[in-house]
């Protein structure tokens, strides 16, 4: 499928050697929205949770400490920038790299939490993220071997061979695992059941946006 049918008119390109970033209204909109959210998250303070205790009259406060707040905010802002980069990239391998960066940052944001259930699911998500590098990079490599190019503009003009379809399916599986979409949602959904909300929300937001962009990329490659 062509760029114009999916994302609207081509507004311009950013040339970085073989990696050319494309600016279409669609990708620019996603980019701007994500950057806006990142700014909001960078400026906001984390929420505090109150845990009620059964049968007793005392509540415990789940708070994010000053040091942890700074670390988490830094990682959340980088995560926002990385997922914004994935929105305007015009290169298949570049996209998988952004995806891997978002994955490691997602684990990092919750890594300092002191709740065992959260850390446990973060560990399980980490296992998936580790496994995901095989289908993500392998899929991109198979598409490169089959077509001889990684540029999305060139790939969108090429007919899809069975090998390209295999590469795209592998990439799709990698994206599903890394962004925690059903049926692999449980490990990621349990991960952000903790205090410090606006920073935690970027975990959810980045995977949401990346899935939208991944659908566009897979349509470009396959049709």
């Amino acid at each position: 499928m062509d760029f114009v049918t999916l994302g609207g008119n081509l507004l311009g390109t950013i040339r970085l050697g073989d990696i050319v970033l494309y600016l279409t209204p669609f990708s620019l909109f996603l980019f701007a929205v994500l950057l806006g959210f990142t700014v909001l998250i960078g400026l906001s303070k984390p929420e505090t949770q109150v845990e009620a205790t059964m049968h007793y009259l005392n509540n415990t406060e789940v708070k994010v400490g000053q040091k942890e707040l700074k670390q988490r905010r830094f990682l959340a802002v980088i995560c926002g920038i990385a997922s914004a980069g994935a929105m305007i990239t015009g290169d298949l391998f570049n996209f998988t790299l952004f995806m891997a960066l978002v994955g490691i940052l997602n684990i990092g944001i919750v890594s300092a939490v002191k709740q065992t259930s959260v850390l446990d699911s973060a560990f399980n998500y980490g296992l998936i993220a580790m496994m995901c590098s095989l289908p993500l990079f392998g899929g991109a490599a198979i598409i490169l071997a089959a077509t001889g190019t990684l540029s999305l503009a060139v790939l969108s003009q090429m007919p899809a061979s069975p090998m390209v379809v295999l590469g795209a399916v592998l990439m799709l599986l990698g994206i599903l695992g890394e962004s925690g979409v059903a049926p692999f949602f449980a490990s990621k959904a349990e991960m952000f059941r903790t205090a410090g909300s606006p920073y935690i929300v970027i975990i959810h937001l980045s995977s949401l946006f990346i899935i939208v962009r991944a659908v566009e990329i897979l349509l470009l490659v396959l049709w």
């Binding site: 399980n124 998500y125 998936i128 496994m131 095989l134 289908p135 692999f184 949602f185 490990s187 349990e190």
Partner: peptide
Amino acid sequence: KLAKPKNIPRLFAFSL
């Protein structure tokens, strides 16, 4: 069964 985080890496590995 799918809602348990422990089962997810196994399911992912299986489908991969």
